[in-house]
């Protein structure tokens, strides 16, 4: 695209679960793959996530949720992004997402669903190939 473009990724932990090991490992792996990674820390509300997306203007957002709150949190985040007319950002969710919830989340525009044990290079590849801009 241009001389100095870097892929910018936001790694977020919405909800209350504090298990940030996976999110941090992913953040490091994406950095090691040459991306610029913003890590927001734990306990992000949907509004926090959307505000950060607006200001940081990332190419991709990775939500990491292990508490089972994905069906409530993810659609709300997607709706709020839509309200702000943000449609060129890849939004992926990982963590513990049961298979049967995937169609519901896909319908809301979410991708990814990498769970524990996913190889890091697979996640890097996923981000690279699914960018929307």
């Amino acid at each position: 695209m241009s001389e100095n473009r870097r892929i910018k990724v936001l790694v977020c932990k919405p909800g209350l679960d504090g298990h940030d090991r996976g999110a941090k490992v992913i953040a490091r792996a994406l950095r090691d793959a040459g991306m610029e990674v913003i890590y927001t820390g734990i306990h992000q509300t949907p509004d926090d996530v959307v505000n950060t997306v607006i200001q940081e203007d990332p190419d991709a957002v990775i939500l990491s949720i292990l508490s089972g709150a994905h069906n409530a949190l993810c659609p709300m985040i997607m709706e709020k992004l839509k309200e702000k007319d943000i449609d060129d950002v890849l939004v992926a969710v990982g963590g513990i997402i049961p298979d049967e919830d995937k169609p519901f989340l896909e319908k809301h525009g979410l991708k990814g669903f990498q769970g524990p044990g996913t190889e890091l290079k697979e996640i890097v590849e996923f981000v690279k190939t699914n960018l929307k801009r």
């Binding site: 490091r28 793959a33 610029e36 913003i38 890590y39 820390g41």
Partner: peptide
């Protein structure tokens, strides 16, 4: 700083910024 080896960077400063700031 950007890592000189990979060109990537980890940006974690937002964590400590109070989140009650509005946009």
């Amino acid at each position: 700083p950007t890592s000189p080896l990979t060109g990537g960077a980890l940006l974690g400063d937002r964590i400590r910024m109070k989140k009650h700031f509005t946009t």
